[in-house]
């Protein structure tokens, strides 16, 4: 059963969940929990708020399961819900700007050896730079890197045009490359 779930597409799992198969949801959730959580987390400086938003996104998915059309792709639909939730959060003024502070930098999971301290430093710098991006640029970057969405899908999620997404991504990468000078080795 678990193996068959692994080979099943997101869309089929979602369809099965709509018809009452809760195991399908479990499998679906297991696939997207990490990337979605990180996507939300990168958009918020407050860890507790990120958890709250992340949970709320899944609750919306659960509530909106009947609205999901089997013909549509699940992942863009999921991230659109997350994106809208984050936009709502920002518009509510609860968090005006991501503060580029040491606390805002996501700590790395494990201690790295001294040999790779440079890499760790580069990673931390990347997240600082990421937090300093504008929300649209950051969203476009995160949707591409974290969710693995195509430009078309990013445009669909963010409700913008293809060229706009391309432009945002280009600007984001330019700023990140500039900030990550010396990390090429």
């Amino acid at each position: 059963m678990a193996e068959s779930m692994n080979n099943t597409s997101d869309e089929k799992l979602m369809t099965r969940y709509r018809t009452g198969d809760t195991a399908a949801f479990d499998s679906l959730y297991g696939r997207h929990r990490g990337p979605l959580f990180r996507y939300v987390q990168r958009q918020c400086s407050n860890h507790a708020v990120a958890e709250e938003l992340y949970q709320d996104v899944w609750m919306r998915v659960i509530r909106a399961r009947e609205q999901w059309q089997p013909g549509t792709r699940f992942q863009p639909w999921l991230y659109r819900i997350a994106h809208n939730r984050i936009i709502d959060h920002w518009r509510a003024g609860r968090e005006n700007h991501l503060q580029i502070e040491d606390e805002a930098v996501i700590p790395l999971d494990r201690p790295w050896p001294d040999a790779v301290m440079l890499i760790r430093e580069c990673v931390e710098r990347l997240f600082k730079l990421l937090a300093g991006l504008s929300e649209p640029q950051r969203s476009a970057f995160l949707l591409k890197e974290e969710a693995g969405l195509s430009l078309e899908q990013i445009a669909e999620v963010t409700g913008t045009g293809y060229e706009t997404v391309k432009s945002r991504l280009r600007y984001a990468l330019r700023r990140l490359r500039t900030g990550l000078e010396g990390c090429d080795e």
Binding site: R38, E51, I106, C122, V123, E124
Partner: peptide, 11 residues
């Protein structure tokens, strides 16, 4: 670099 730092998961 992004993937190296993206290991966090929800509680």
């Amino acid at each position: 670099l992004y993937k190296l730092g993206s290991k966090t998961e929800p509680p």
